[in-house]
Amino acid sequence: MFQSAVALAAMSLLTGTNADLQTCSTNSGYSCASSSTTPTCCFNYPGGALLQTQFWDTSPSTGPSTSWTIHGLWPDNCDGTYESSCDSSRAYTNITDILQTQGRDDLLDYMDEYWVDINGDNESFWAHEWGKHGTCINTIDPDCYQGYTAQEEVGDFFEKVVDLFKGLDTYKALAAAGITPSTSKTYTLSAIQSALTEMHGASVYLGCSSGKLNQVWYFYNVQGNAIDGSYKAVKTLTNSGCPSTGIKYVPK
């Protein structure tokens, strides 16, 4: 039941957000799976793999005690390498103002709960994620919009990251496999990987610090643009940074 519910939710989330972007053919190939090296408004390149990344912060704790939190959405060059900070002219630092101007108050409220900075400076965290990663997603460049309005792509980016995150409930997927936060229990890498692979449909990157689970990255290839294109789960391009056994998953 859990897997079916997640799969249905993911399907509904990954089909589009009705952005004002140029229409893309449904016959176009998925990013990373094509020999094309030409970036277009309908083909993500060179950052053809998109990673929805999450945190489990416990020192200090961030976000709800029964949920992971958002790290970001990162374009990867299909091989584990990536470009960053691709357009300094669009490295906006007033994310809250932009979202409020666009009438995305509900999105902003959600981000304040689930996309939180470990030092309490959410605004700087969001600006960092947009400037470093969002500006490198070529299919949301201003030229890709029809009737573009200033900073339209910024709101679309944050909305898409949140939509993806809502379809990837890491806490629930682990709990369904009997993997819950504990001060005494430890878990194996294979058990954690299996639980999240079952939800996502492909293997994920798992990160640990001092043997404590604290990160997960979900990899996708995209057909069409990054906002209303079709997302397909693909296996991790990066080896997990956790030990094979004795992994701690401590409570917030």
Rank of each mutant, 00 (worst) to 15 (best):
L73V: 03
T236D: 04
F43M: 04
L237E: 15
L189S: 15
L206I: 15
K235I: 04
S244T: 15
T139D: 08
S84Q: 14
A5Q: 14
S12K: 09
A233K: 07
D109S: 15
G103P: 07
T135F: 00
S240N: 13
S240T: 15
D156C: 07
T38Y: 05
T53W: 05
A49D: 13
C86D: 06
P39A: 06
E159W: 00
A150C: 02
S194M: 14
V222E: 09
T186P: 10
Q22H: 04
S67P: 05
L196H: 14
T96S: 11
C41F: 05
W217V: 08
G201D: 00
L196P: 03
T69N: 07
W56Y: 12
I137Y: 01
N138D: 15
A5Y: 10
V6C: 14
Q100N: 07
L108N: 07
M11K: 10
H128K: 13
G47K: 06
A176H: 14
F219P: 15
D112W: 06
T15A: 03
P60E: 05
A19K: 06
I227F: 04
N44S: 15
G131M: 02
D143Q: 15
Q54T: 08
P251G: 13
F165D: 12
D121R: 01
T188K: 14
S35P: 02
S244G: 10
S25F: 03
T66H: 10
S190A: 15
G201N: 01
A195H: 13
W68N: 12
I70P: 02
M111Y: 12
Y30K: 02
E152R: 14
T139C: 11
A5V: 10
T197Q: 00
E123F: 02
H71M: 06
L237D: 11
S124C: 03
G103A: 00
A33P: 01
Y220S: 05
L51K: 08
G155D: 07
G16N: 03
Y45V: 12
K160W: 01
L50T: 08
V154Y: 09
L237K: 04
